[in-house]
Computed example of a mutant assay.
Amino acid sequence: MLTSDQTEQQQSERKITHRCTECGIPLAPDECYVCDSCAIFLYADPNSMMYEGDDDDSV
């Protein structure tokens, strides 16, 4: 049987939360390394921007 100290230690280990590597806020269960707001800046979609040379109408 567990002593009260061992029980408290196990409960404190369960409460460990992972933090965002960029801003340090606690992460949601579905987030891995960075929060959603930091992920927008770190992992920007390269196809989301159009440049002047991309709008060719010569099809």
Rank of each mutant, 00 (worst) to 15 (best):
M1E: 14
M1P: 12
M1N: 05
L2E: 15
S4Q: 02
D5R: 02
D5F: 01
D5W: 00
Q6L: 13
Q6A: 13
Q6D: 15
Q6W: 08
Q6F: 03
T7G: 03
T7M: 03
E8P: 00
E8W: 00
Q9I: 11
Q9D: 14
Q10G: 08
Q10L: 14
Q10T: 07
Q10I: 13
Q10F: 11
Q11Y: 02
Q11V: 02
Q11M: 10
Q11N: 10
S12M: 14
S12V: 09
S12R: 09
E13M: 12
E13H: 01
R14W: 09
R14V: 10
R14K: 13
K15N: 14
K15L: 15
I16G: 05
I16R: 08
I16V: 12
I16W: 06
H18V: 09
R19D: 15
C20F: 03
T21S: 14
T21A: 14
E22I: 06
E22N: 08
C23L: 06
C23E: 12
G24A: 04
G24S: 07
I25T: 11
I25Y: 03
I25E: 09
P26S: 08
L27C: 06
L27G: 03
A28N: 14
D30Y: 07
D30I: 05
D30R: 02
E31F: 01
E31S: 06
E31D: 11
E31Q: 13
E31M: 04
C32N: 15
C32G: 12
C32V: 13
C32K: 13
V34M: 08
V34K: 01
C35P: 11
C35Q: 07
C35N: 07
D36N: 13
D36L: 12
D36I: 09
D36V: 09
D36M: 11
S37F: 08
S37Q: 14
S37V: 09
S37Y: 04
C38F: 00
C38T: 03
C38R: 00
A39L: 08
I40N: 11
F41N: 14
L42H: 04
L42M: 12
Y43S: 09
Y43M: 10
Y43C: 07
D45H: 04
D45T: 01
D45G: 03
D45R: 00
D45I: 00
P46Q: 07
P46H: 02
N47R: 01
N47T: 09
N47Y: 04
S48H: 01
S48L: 02
S48W: 00
S48R: 00
S48D: 12
M49I: 05
M49C: 06
M49W: 04
M50T: 00
Y51A: 08
Y51T: 10
E52S: 08
E52V: 01
G53W: 00
G53S: 11
G53C: 07
D54E: 13
D54C: 03
D54T: 02
D55H: 06
D56F: 04
D56E: 15
D56Q: 05
D56W: 01
D57P: 01
D57I: 00
D57L: 11
D57C: 05
V59F: 10
V59P: 10
V59S: 10
V59W: 10
